[in-house]
Design a binder for these strands. Structure first.
Lengths: 203, 203
DNA sequence: GTGCTGTGATTAACGGCGTTAAGTAACAGC
DNA sequence: GCTGTTACTTAACGCCGTTAATCACAGCAC
């Protein structure tokens, strides 16, 4: 029983390592097998197929992101606004620091996702819940406003995701300073949830 | 000379067709060749490799997007704010209406992009320029504000790109209405470039 | 000890892929 | 009729994900 788990763990660790080292595009079952010194088909004893292996890795990434966001949220439990800002920053940093991870987590087209819907979605959505609850706290304390917290949290996420995506794919104009860009993006994302009394009507 | 161009065109058209019909993942040189009734190697007479074929397709997509944005911009030449809003909406609509196109244009990791930098970048950046010029006009007329128009245009783009990406990959909570989400995202994106006198300080 | 069963791994194979090298058939110009 | 060129094909290489069949060996029943 321990040996079964052992090889499964080695596969996951090696895959993550190869992913970071060589990128997603060049990753293959045979290459993973070579790296751990087993035959390619051995991997199929522990994972249904390549997708399933990646899904397991995605789950671990979601867990890690969740842990990081949770820690950030705890550090700013008193101020919803500071908390939301810190969460945004941490999200972007996570994406930039874990490029290949971010790619399989959020960039790859999830064609097969319908197969493992419930648990996977639930796990990914916890990350959004942390943001939504910062929003809810802010609304309650009167320092934020939103018509629908779920929608606002998703919109903020979309803005952050776009920021990370463009940065990772190097599509942002090189003349634009990376940090200035990220700061501007976060500022802009947060500006949307300011309380009504100081918020202007939309353009 | 006309026949050379003919097959090249057929390859491009068929590839686009297969892309829309079956998706990027299942597209192969051999499949394209089968569809046009030629051997796979014939494609290499007109395109250096698979990447080059896709780059040509991306260029066409960029051209189409540019045309659409240009048309929108012309229709709202008098009002920078209405223009910017219409541009945002058109961008999102383009992404949602041309899923597979949008995928190869903006979602795929451009590993090889360094090779064809100048023309490709320039072409893609024209789309951003249309937005930036709406911004510049707005600033000039005093109905918008931004510290740096290039940065603001990119930040808006990032927000729109994130919105399209999450929608296309079906990662947005199903309970959130698609149009409401898009409207909220665009509102939020535009809120960041309101003039200073009505804009609150950042959260 | 002999035989049975189950487990964890292997090898061989299938059909696909992108790409290159070599070859062929049709045709233009001399 | 030969030559060179153009437009295309076939054959092949070395990858890929995945499946089927097989092997080595452990533990256990008798």
């Amino acid at each position: 029983m321990s040996s079964e788990t052992d090889l499964r763990r080695r596969i996951l660790d090696t895959t993550r390592h190869l992913l970071v080292q060589d990128g997603y595009a060049s990753l293959s079952m045979r290459k993973i097998a070579r790296a751990i010194g087993y035959s390619a088909t051995s991997i199929y004893l522990y994972f249904e197929n390549k997708d399933a292996l990646f899904h397991a890795l995605i789950d671990e990434g979601m867990e890690q992101l969740y842990d990081e966001l949770k820690t950030v949220a705890a550090a700013y439990s008193d101020s919803p606004r500071a908390r939301l800002r810190a969460l945004c920053r941490r999200y972007v940093e996570f994406g930039l620091e874990n490029q290949e991870y971010y790619e399989i987590m959020f960039l790859l087209r999830p064609e097969r996702m319908e197969r493992y819907p419930a648990d996977k979605y639930r796990r990914a959505r916890r990350n959004l819940d942390i943001m939504a609850s910062a929003l809810a706290d802010g609304v309650e304390q009167g320092v934020m406003h939103t018509d629908d917290p779920r929608v606002s949290a998703s919109v903020i996420w979309a803005a952050l995701h776009g920021t990370v995506s463009l940065q990772l794919s190097r599509r942002v104009d090189i003349r634009i300073d990376r940090d200035a860009f990220i700061d501007a993006a976060i500022d802009q994302a947060l500006r949307g949830v300011l309380p009504v009394e100081v918020r202007p009507q939309a353009a």
